[in-house]
Structures are given as C-alpha cells and as structure tokens.
Design a protein around this nucleic acid. Structure first.
Lengths: 232, 232
DNA sequence: GATAATTTTTATATAATGTTTATATATTGC
DNA sequence: GCAATATATAAACATTATATAAAAATTATC
C-alpha cells in the first residue's frame, strides 16, 4: 500500500471520491501516520472490525451506506474516534452526526492544517485519567488509584513507578484489551511503540509482584498477538 | 441525548461579552446543565482550580489573558475539556488553539444547536465504557468485539489474532456473504487474494475452536464457489 | 556520594501461531 | 456415474510471540 511506518498511528479514510481521498491521504502520510483507505462504507466497517485503526475519517456522502448508519453501526461496539467530513453544511445534519457518535465534524472545503490539528486532538490521550474511578476491586486484587495502593489477597504490594502506571492503565480500561502499542505509548510515551520487549519485562515484574502465574493468570491476561488485559 | 441529566454537569463560560454569555448560558441551562460564568481569564482559571467544572467554554478574545495562555495554563494541570468560541476564523489561530490543548473550536456566528451538540460530544466520555461492550449474539454464539471475547454456549473460547480477525469480519457483515477475495484482502492484506488455501485452513481452525461441524455448521456457513457467511 | 532500587539491554528457552504440503472428502456440471 | 472443481483437515515446518533470567546503565534515596 504505502510506506508503512511501524509504530505510527493508523488512520482509516472512508471516502468514495478519489481526489479527496488522495489529498487527505498524502497530507496524513506526510505527518507520519499510517493510512488505510476504504471506498465503501461496508468495506470501512469490516476493516474496523478486522484491524481497528486509531481514528476513522468518514465522508458522510457514501454511495452504499448512509453516513449516520455507519456511525451507529461502528459505535455499537467500538469507541474509535470518528471525524466526519462533509459538503453538507446543514446544522441539523451536523447535530445528527455528532449525536450519533461522531467526535468532530469538518465541512468541505476545509483547510488541511485545521484538519490535521483536529486529527491530533482526537488522537490525544489525556482523556483516560478523567474516566478513571478511584477504586478497583476484583477477587484477590484491590487497586486504589488515588492512594497508589495495591493489595493482593489482603497483603499490600509495593510497585515501582512504571509497574504502577501499567497496572493503573489496565485498571482504567476495565478489562478491555490494550494493545502493545497503546500501552507503550501511554507508559513510555510516543517513540517507544516498538520496544515490545520493555513491556514483556515489565509485565513479568508486575506479575511476579502480584504473584500471578503467566500460564494460569488470575489478574493480567495475555492476548496473543495483541496485548494484555485485566481480568474483571 | 438531549434529555437533561440528573446530577447535572457543570459548565464554565469564560467570556467578556455579556450578550453572548447570556445567550449561551440560557441555551445550556435549558438543556439542564449547571452554568458558571467568568468575565475574565484569571477569574476563570481560579474557578477551575477551586471547583473544577466538567467543561470550559472559552472565548479567545478576553481582555486580560491571551486565549492561548489560558489554554496552556489550564492544561498544565488539568484535563478538563475546553471548547473555544471565537470570531477570528484564521486557520493558524485555530490550529494553535487546538494544539495548545483545546478540544474543539467553534467560529462565531455559530448555530446554537451545533454548539450544544459539540458540548454533548465533549461530555460524552463516561458513556464510552458502557457503549464499548455492546455485543453480537446469536443462539450459542456471543462475540464482544470491544473486549475481543468469544463465548460458545456460555464457555469462553480463546482465538488467535487471525482467527479473531476473521470472526470479527463475519460478525461485522451481519450475515452477508463475504467472498474469498474480500476476506483474504481484509485479513491478510492485499497481495494474498489468491491464497485461498490459507483461508480454508483458517476457517478449519476457527470452526474447530467454535465446535462447529462443517457438514452441518451452526455458525460459519460455506457458500460454495463464493465464500463464507455467518448464521444470524 | 554511596547504596539500593529501578529501568534498560542483552540473551535465550519455550510456546503459540502461521504457512506450506499433501491428501481425503464433498459438490457440481455434464 | 464420472470427471472436474471446490472444500476440509492433518501434519510437518517455519516464523513469530512470549516469558524470564541476568547483565549493565540509570535513577532515586538516604
């Protein structure tokens, strides 16, 4: 397809007009993003299911699927941010799209710089901490995010900074799978998305401190080829 | 979505023009939000520190503090969503504000309906977890795409990356037939569209893990000469 | 500034997955 | 019924992913 920069964020453009697709694609790739394309809505939805991108840029005027349907069908199971592009400037349509689950709405013709800025906003990840509830409990494990306290079977466990960051991330995701990339970006910062071995070592340490057996883990579950998730 | 919330969210308007302040305030209160006002930037910042609101609506043209400074100073310690209102439509300014940490940027004059919709988007975050775990169900099979969880007759089944990608694809197509080519392109990427035997092996594995008999399949149906589809 | 704790490297064993080859079975068109 | 084609699956092999140990480097703590 294109120069696939490994470690880069993946964006999916769902757009039938070849011209706009190319234009947006080139701009995004210049910023170092990996870009996939879909000409049709069904194709876009399938791609999201098979290999979820980090952001979807959606044209509302697709030939096969109604734009609002697309948003609703994706939102039925996924929280991937959606940025809508549209020629129609009607306020009603904007409101409908946003309420259906779109995260932003840009009207054509648009400035490419603004589009890029809005993409950056949607990929920014400061939102997670806001949603984090203070206390997590599951059989045997108890994590107090506010106090930075961890207990396993009633006994306190002291974790290092990174170990706690990883556990906090898993806790905040409520059992959702986190990909290696996601974890690396959030715990080590962007630029370390390929250092998967860091993660392995850290998970090893954390499991050891939690007394978790990797073959039959109680807490941190391995999802082969994808990442890790917390048992809830 | 427009239904007023109990335990209403608190919004802070930072705006010096009384007219706009009042206009926005009344619209927000009509939606059931609690609204605070600040005439000056400094006032707004101290309010955020003292009793953090759930969202800040910020006018960029404040008399005392530069808008970008406001955003940066708030972002130094807080992740409260910021929606910027501004008369200036210059793209550069939009980009600067968004990159400084604003979450959305609306240009005056704006439709109040659109503004409300964008407010809802920024306040939506908590719902994500609930929405993210919607699932696909058919008799005996249950697939949670967000959690990557698959259950057959109540028992969890663990799938490999490709196996899950294939199942997710079938699920996302809602029982529509997927051709060999389509599946090969989406799961293996373009360039493998003729490796039909890959697909056969994979379907075999998947069926085995799901306990599906190919002669009388409950889940994955063969469409001779064309491809496969999911029973729905 | 010395010591301990943590993090990053490096290296290696093991397990899981993916690909290929081969072969058996079923389906379709004639 | 008999080729021709399409499908299923078994098993060997190659590749990739995972876990973990132990070193070197860095950072924190007293």
């Amino acid at each position: 397809m294109t120069a696939p920069k490994t470690g880069a964020e993946t964006l999916l453009i769902v757009e039938d007009e070849a011209q706009i697709r190319k234009f947006v694609r080139i701009s995004l790739e210049a910023q170092g993003y990996r870009v996939w394309e879909a000409r049709l809505g069904e194709e876009g939805l399938s791609l999201c299911a098979a290999t979820p991108p980090h952001l979807v840029i959606l044209d509302l005027g697709l030939p096969d699927v109604d734009g609002l349907d697309f948003i609703r069908r994706l939102r039925a199971w996924s929280a991937i941010p959606i940025l809508v592009l549209s020629v129609r400037a009607s306020e009603t349509e904007k409101i409908q799209a946003l309420d259906a689950g779109a995260n932003d709405y840009v009207t054509k013709p648009f400035g490419i710089g603004e589009l890029m800025a809005r993409v950056r906003v949607l990929l920014r990840k400061e939102e997670r901490q806001a949603a984090a509830s203070a206390l997590f409990e599951s059989p045997g494990l108890r994590v107090d995010l506010g106090r930075r306290e961890v207990m396993v079977d009633g006994a306190p466990v002291s974790l290092s900074r990174k170990e706690f960051a990883l556990l906090a991330l898993l806790v905040a995701s409520q059992g959702q799978v986190l990909t290696h990339e996601q974890i690396l970006r959030e715990v080590w910062g962007s630029g370390h998305q390929e250092d998967t071995h860091y993660l392995r070592v850290l998970v090893g340490h954390l499991r050891q401190k939690l007394g978790d057996d990797p073959m039959h883990p109680r807490f941190i579950l391995t999802v082969q080829g994808i990442g890790y998730r917390l048992a809830v």
